[in-house]
Nucleic acid binder design. Structure first.
Lengths: 123, 123
DNA sequence: CCTGGCCTTGACGTCGGTGTGAAGGTCTAG
DNA sequence: CTAGACCTTCACACCGACGTCAAGGCCAGG
């Protein structure tokens, strides 16, 4: 299939697909006219990339998943490198949640304090 | 005081202070040499800005807090507009935490599944 | 022949909060 | 006189994942 079709099938844009290729995540064959030609493996790769991006992964993080698929993995996360990224991301997310929780607590306290005190909104 | 001193007192850079001014958060008087001249009120304002930025607020979000201080508020959050931002931010943070929790759960499941199955890392 | 729909490459714009550097003015100490 | 420590404005660089436009090739249908 060509780039427009792949974009539509994966709910993305041709710009993004070219960008993924530029970043070395995709490698398309070319037909006689110089058009990019994709197959089912590429379709799976792009779907993998999109689902990872959707949950907050960076493009770099998707690399091992795509490599895993290309190496014949049943799914993108069927390889140790992918699982390593999972673990790293999990740790990052935990950190992020912790920080947000701390801020949340502080914020909630500030709001409570403000609505509890008359002095909070002078004039 | 001048910009270098204010920057040092607030743990920021002269560049940032000029940027805050450019964004209309600060307004400095000028001395005969054209140098910016700051007072205690400015110091408080910058401290307010920095502490809000530090917990993930955008510069725009700090605007009501600075205005509140300038209007004579005991603290930057002593005004209804500031509290409104608090509430909005709290909601945003809650959304963010929820999304992260969902991703975290999904991720943890993926890791469990992968380490549980032998088939997970073929070859 | 012309229109329109697909494709190509190349390159600039976006967002926010800075870092960094150029090119210059002003003052002080040695 | 000079070095250096302040200050000024202007303006480009950064990050990431694209959007968007320009300028052009290729092909089918009317």
């Amino acid at each position: 299939m060509r780039i427009g079709e792949l974009a539509e099938l994966t709910g993305t844009s041709t710009r993004s697909l070219r960008y993924y290729e530029e970043q070395g995540l995709l490698s398309a064959r070319r037909d006689a006219k110089g058009y990019r030609e994709y197959d089912e493996a590429d379709l799976r790769a792009v779907r993998e990339i999109r689902s990872l991006l959707a949950i907050g992964f960076g493009l770099e993080d998707t690399r091992p998943f795509v490599a895993c698929l290309r190496a014949g993995g049943a799914s993108g996360d069927s390889c140790p490198d992918s699982v390593a990224v999972y673990r790293r991301k999990l740790a990052e997310i935990d950190d992020c949640i912790d920080r947000l929780q701390a801020v949340r607590t502080q914020l909630a306290r500030s709001i409570d304090r403000c609505s509890g005190e008359r002095r909070c909104c002078p004039r």
